[in-house]
C-alpha cells in the first residue's frame, strides 16, 4: 500500500523539479533506470513480508491456535538468505555495469569546464578561455562535457540531479566528472555536501543549448564586458570602480579585477543573485548591494556604504552587463 502510494507520488509530482527521476542526460538516465529496477524489487519483497506478517496477525492470534515448536530452517534459509542472495548478486552486477558506465567520460577533445567551489558560490571557467562567470555553466546539447572540480576552501559537492550524480570537491585535489544533456533546457544543480552557514544557498544552473549558442557563450566569456550605454550606467560603472566593489569583484575590460567574489562581467544575465538566494531583478540587486547579510546571512560580502543617489546607477550598470 505504502509502496503503491510511492509509485503514484513519484510519477505524479516530479514534473518541473530538478528531479533525479526526470533525467535529461545519459548519466542520470542510467541511475533512474537502476532506481526503477530497485524500486520494483523492493515492492515485491515488501509485499512478501507484509503478506507473511498479515497471515500471522490474522491466523495466529486465535486462542485455540496450537503453538508449534518446530524449527523451519529451510524457510528461513531460502526466504532470508537464498532469494536475497540471488537478487543481491544480480543487482550488484547491474550496479557494477552502471558504475562502469558513469566512468565512461568524454574524449580528450571535449570541452573542459573548470568549476571551483567557494563558500557559497561556484566559480566557472572554461579551459582555454580567459574569463569567468559564476553559478551558471553552459553545455552543448548531445555532447559529453568534462567538468573539472576544485574547491577554494571546504568540501562541496557538484550535483545536477537531472544530468549526473554527485562528485565531491575535495580540498587539495582535483576531481573530474562529466555532463551530458539529451535535450535543451536549464537544469538546476546545488551543492550537496554541507559546507557551512549558507550551504542552503549554493545553487547553480546548467544551461544545455544547441552548439552555436554554446559557442556564442564561450565567445562572450572570452571578451570584455559590455561597456555602459547610458549616463546612469556610466555613473554606475564609476561608482563600481571607485567604491569598494572592485576590491573583490572583477569586470572584464574595466580594470576591476578582484578575485574574492564572483566575476560580474555578465551579472545582468544571470538567473539569480547569491547562488540561488533571490531572483535577479533590480529590487533584489539593490537590497543585496546595500546589505546582503539580510538576504543571505553569513555570506562574505559586507554591507556597502552606497549613497541613496548612487544605488540606482549601480543597479542600472550591473543589470546592463549581459
Amino acid at each position: 500500500m505504502v509502496a503503491l502510494g510511492t509509485g503514484l507520488a513519484l510519477t505524479g509530482c516530479a514534473g518541473g523539479a530538478p528531479s533525479a527521476l526526470d533525467p535529461a542526460g545519459a548519466g542520470a538516465a542510467r541511475v533512474a533506470n537502476l532506481w526503477w529496477l530497485l524500486f520494483w524489487i523492493s515492492v515485491a519483497v515488501f509485499a512478501e513480508v507484509m503478506a507473511l506478517l498479515t497471515w500471522a496477525l490474522v491466523f495466529r492470534r486465535k486462542r485455540r491456535v496450537r503453538v508449534r515448536h518446530g524449527q523451519p530452517l529451510r524457510f528461513v534459509v531460502v526466504a532470508g538468505a537464498g532469494i536475497p542472495l540471488v537478487i543481491l548478486v544480480a543487482v550488484y552486477a547491474v550496479g557494477l555495469r552502471d558504475l562502469a558506465a558513469l566512468g565512461d567520460g568524454p574524449g580528450p577533445d571535449a570541452p573542459t569546464i573548470e568549476v571551483t567551489g567557494h563558500k557559497w558560490w561556484w566559480e566557472v571557467r572554461v579551459q582555454g578561455v580567459d574569463g569567468a562567470t559564476a553559478n551558471e555553466l553552459h553545455i552543448p546539447v548531445g555532447e559529453k562535457v568534462r567538468v573539472r572540480l576544485r574547491t577554494a576552501d571546504v568540501l562541496h559537492s557538484f550535483w545536477v540531479p537531472q544530468l549526473m550524480p554527485k562528485t565531491d570537491l575535495i580540498a587539495g585535489e582535483t576531481r573530474e566528472t562529466w555532463l551530458h544533456a539529451e535535450r535543451a533546457g536549464s537544469y538546476r544543480g546545488q551543492c550537496a555536501e554541507y559546507c557551512g552557514t549558507q550551504h542552503a544557498h549554493m545553487a547553480f544552473l546548467v544551461v544545455a543549448e544547441p552548439r552555436p549558442d554554446f559557442d556564442a557563450w564561450l565567445a562572450r566569456l572570452g571578451t570584455p564586458a559590455r561597456p555602459p550605454q547610458t549616463d546612469a550606467q556610466r555613473r554606475g560603472q564609476q561608482a563600481f570602480l571607485q567604491g569598494s566593489c572592485a576590491g573583490c569583484h572583477a569586470i572584464r575590460g574595466t580594470g576591476a579585477d578582484g578575485r574574492i567574489g564572483p566575476d560580474l562581467s555578465d551579472v545582468g544575465s544571470r538567473w539569480s543573485i547569491g547562488a540561488g538566494a533571490v531572483p535577479n531583478d533590480g529590487g533584489h540587486l539593490g537590497g543585496w548591494i546595500a546589505n546582503s547579510q539580510t538576504v543571505k546571512p553569513g555570506n562574505y560580502m559586507p554591507p556597502q556604504q552606497v549613497g541613496a543617489g548612487q544605488l540606482p546607477d549601480l543597479i542600472a550598470y550591473l543589470q546592463s552587463l549581459k
Binding site: 542472495l85 548478486v89 550488484y92 552486477a93 557494477l96 558504475l99 562502469a100 566512468g103 576531481r175 573530474e176
Partner: peptide, 19 residues
C-alpha cells in the same frame, strides 16, 4: 567466501586505477 568472490568479480570487471 561470497564477499571475497564478489570482490574478485569487481577486480575482473573494473580497471584498477580509473577514476
Amino acid at each position: 567466501l561470497t564477499i571475497i568472490v564478489l570482490g574478485g568479480v569487481a577486480l575482473i570487471v573494473l580497471p584498477p586505477c580509473q577514476r
